[in-house]
């Protein structure tokens, strides 16, 4: 993790979103390539996680994962 204090980056760029220019405008720009995966989603569809949710651990040693480890021992 980098040690910079960069919590402000998202906020600083948030003003674009307030103007409706942020992700929505970006999505419009890539509209000709709409058949492909989009770089950004329209602002209305964004479901951003909080800073704490982002870095929460997702890995769990489920049966599925244990089966992977087991079969890799063969």
């Amino acid at each position: 993790m980098n040690g910079r204090k960069d919590g402000g980056v998202a906020e600083r760029r948030g003003f674009l979103r307030a103007l409706g220019l942020g992700t929505a405008a970006a999505a419009a720009a890539v509209a000709p390539a709409a058949a492909q995966r989009s770089d950004s989603v329209p602002a209305g569809q964004a479901r951003k996680e909080s800073a704490a949710e982002r870095v929460a651990a997702r890995y769990r040693e489920t049966d599925h994962v244990r089966a992977f480890y087991r079969t890799n021992r063969y």
């Binding site: 964004a46 479901r47 996680e49």
Partner: peptide, 15 residues
């Protein structure tokens, strides 16, 4: 592991 959108949301899948 997706990205900063909610886990397994459509937005996360797209991006």
């Amino acid at each position: 592991a997706g990205g900063p959108q909610q886990d397994n949301s459509h937005a996360e899948y797209l991006q």
